[in-house]
Design a protein around this nucleic acid. Structure first.
Lengths: 213, 213, 213, 213
DNA sequence: GATGAATGAGTCTTCATTCAT
DNA sequence: AATGAATGAAGACTCATTCAT
């Protein structure tokens, strides 16, 4: 038989990953059987195994794909120059995650929780996640540094501590939205700002900035 | 064997729950087999099943127990009068979770991630969790209202939005600490405060309040 | 503790047997667990086991009890002098089985089928049943001999062959009634008679005799 | 392994069914474990389960197969034109059942008892059996009607009552033979005839007809 | 290259029976 | 004598993975 083209291979891979993704989301990582994925992919067992040598590998690939999806999603927001102010950035990140989630019925937030859980017992997955979130947090720290420089946050703020809080807000938004389902992106942004002492001025400035975007 | 006393029953239940907990933490909810738990509990299969009729029930009970453990842990912090100021509260909550985690080698944060994940596919667990986190957030909203009243946060702050942000910070701390492991309670508290515009004054006041406690 | 009286022991035995009986009937011999029987008897596990050393023994005793119940039920019919004529005897036997069945919600017919089935794999039970049915058939053969002597059936009839047919009719009634549920005692009696060539005269005579009883 | 042919599938099914059949016969329906059947079939657990999704389904299929086997066996006898006379039919049916039983060491009679017993607690099985025996009895009623028409039995006989008696004789033969093991097909035929009042004429005619076949 | 039937170790759960109290 | 909690050997069934065709 003629060798399958690289494009076709990549296409198949995608197809399997999508099938896996939707199964994982519906049933969780462990309750999803390879048969489910195989059936959902429309391929044969052998075919699926020729692309991913084991279920673990498939999980790993699915998580990696979703992480890189998130990166592509958030990168533009983080690279803005001048940077989006705190409340806006938070709101836009949350909104982007939501928007991505509603696409095709995939819920990135649910998937994220599955991945976090699995990372607790899967060394390699943990490694992948650490890499991703560390890099992400570094990017956030960069943004914080700029914010501090331009006075959007305390000039004395330590970028890496502020980044930890920022990442917590984002991850916490994901968890809270997945578990309770009643958190709008705008609310999380406003809420974070309101927590600021001397809030009125914080709010005003925040509002002004937001409006001016 | 004549009727066992209620205390003894409760003791055995606890024993099984502890065994389950430590297995779950090590291997995750699904990779943990009943045999693992049975062996860890030191009882027989039949005995374990006489306390918990199924693995699902055991998972549910373990999560419920850990949730009520958290509640007991955090309640005192939330009921302080006058309330702890934002940064302090955040730091103390994070510290309490950490402290509880290091006890007996249980890590509440890892367990939390397992529970969140499982809640995605287990109706009943989701119900339990929703109830818990909703009540918790309501309590946070009460605190936010007081903060706003005394000017510790913006007087115009909406308590429920601020509570959402606060809960996100807490859940996000849990996730980030479980995944990256390099987040100290104090850092998350400081970071959140630093995100505030005009942070220095916020910090000062926050510091003062903290110091004065 | 004072020794339990023999009466009390017999009473308890009966109580357990009744519980077993009603469980067996509802769930079958194997799907019935000792716990079911223990719960239904209102005694403790230990108590039940002090009366019957094993489930098999309990099954054996339950079947034996039901067999001896049947014997008591049918004996009077078989010992009539002059004997009941064929159709009447058949009808009355079927009716007696039915009557006994409707008592207390026990269905002797269902129980019989369970016993027959179990006898296929339980040596001892098979022995008990063989003894019972052989004796019963011998009694039927006696009746047939008398019938032949007085001309109620063919004078040349071989009692043991006629008895086999008679027993078949009775067992077959039991099976058919348990499986299809639409066989009245009178119908089986009449049907058997109608199978006779020159039936009308058979019927007449049969009727007359019946009426005269 | 590419798609298996339909024939091969049917063959495998048969193979499993045969294995199940012989286990059931030896140990009864419930004492037979899937492992027994799996071992006897020569296949793996997974393979067996790919043909029958559960033990219950396998039992159902085994019983259904044996019922359809009986139907094929008896149909020719019931469709004879002119119909076999009563004694002959009875004898031939019993003989056919016996003959089928001795084939391959399967005993249809024992299997029948197992099925009857199981039908008491298995709704679906009961449905299957009712359908089968009702249809069979209807066929018998047709034969009885013809017999009455040609005077082989009482002209006034009600076909459905006669059919009930006939079915009882057949089922009763099965039970008696399985339990006592000393009933020859010929004996049951003769015995039934001898039960006729005014037997001599009945016998003669019956004999004549039998001889003339 | 592709297929999908087959494998079999491993899972959860049950239940007859015992025996410490 | 009586209790009922505990035992642990099975039992039914699943599912990641392989490999003959």
């Amino acid at each position: 038989m003629p060798k399958i083209s690289d494009e076709r291979r990549a296409e198949r891979r995608e197809q399997i990953l999508n099938a896996a993704w939707s199964c994982f989301q519906r049933d969780g990582l462990h309750a999803t059987t390879m048969d489910h994925i195989i059936a959902a992919s429309g391929l044969s067992a052998g075919a699926v195994y020729s692309y991913f040598p084991s279920k673990e590998e498939l999980i790993l690939a699915a998580v990696a794909a979703s992480l890189s999806g998130i990166r592509e999603l958030l990168d533009p927001l983080l690279r803005r120059d001048p940077p989006l102010p705190p409340e806006t950035l938070l709101r836009e990140i949350a909104a982007a995650i939501d928007r991505f989630s509603s696409r095709d019925g995939f819920d990135l937030k649910r998937l994220a929780l599955l991945g976090w859980s699995e990372a607790q017992r899967n060394e390699r997955l943990r490694g992948t996640m650490r890499g991703f979130y560390t890099a992400f947090r570094d990017q956030l720290a960069e943004v914080c540094k700029t914010w501090a420089a331009v006075g959007l946050i305390a000039r004395t703020a330590k970028p890496d501590e502020a980044a930890k809080a920022l990442l917590a807000l984002i991850l916490g938004y994901v968890a809270q939205a997945a578990l309770l389902g009643d958190v709008e992106p705008a609310a999380i942004g406003r809420g974070a700002t309101q927590l600021a002492p001397y809030g009125p001025r914080g709010l005003q400035r925040s509002k002004r900035t937001t409006t001016s975007r």
